[in-house]
Amino acid sequence: MSHSKNENTFSRRFFIKTSSAFTALALVPHSIKAFYNDIKETYFTKKVVLPIYLKINGKDYNLNADSRTTLLDLLRENLNLTGTKKGCDHGQCGACTVHINGQRALSCLSLAAMMQGKEITTIEGLANGDNLHPMQEAFLEHDGYQCGYCTPGQIMSAVACVNEGHTKSIEEIKEYMSGNICRCGAYNGITNAIKSVAK
């Protein structure tokens, strides 16, 4: 399936207007209905499924994905990699943080189709087999969580925070971890965990 070049020139309002107009004219000849359907097929936005290639946690995935699918929904709904969490779907909470080419990024604001060929690491890919990543160990040791829902995002951000070198003081860690909301308020443990790894 392909997009029409002209899709943006027709608004949804136009579609609704024409659509209801045609619905009202229930007795119009078949040829006109067919003509209308042809127009709709040609001009209006529809579901587009794209083949995409992704590299997630070192594993290759060749998938067909809805062009509207975010990386977050692709991970959670299509691949059952539910460690990456949805906390707002607006890029406001950090729960969906993953690494894209080694940088922390919000998977809810990243369209899956734009991740072609990029290296994605999620919480599931952080440990080395049964050996936890030092940051995961530190979160356990410092009780850097309560309910655990924001935790994968916190840990992915925390690893990046250390890699970025933003760990010179408690204040700096707190500043650079403030894109990840923990509504349980386990900020002591999160901050201390990062401090212990950064040493």
């Binding site: 959670r76 356990l140 655990g148 935790t151």
Partner: peptide, 23 residues
């Protein structure tokens, strides 16, 4: 086997399943 809460490993590895996460 190591430290923290009994469900800790599930939480820090992303294995903990919350209500929307059952396939």
């Amino acid at each position: 086997k190591n430290k923290g809460r009994i469900e800790g490993i599930a939480k820090v590895t992303g294995k903990a399943k919350y209500s929307a996460e059952y396939a």
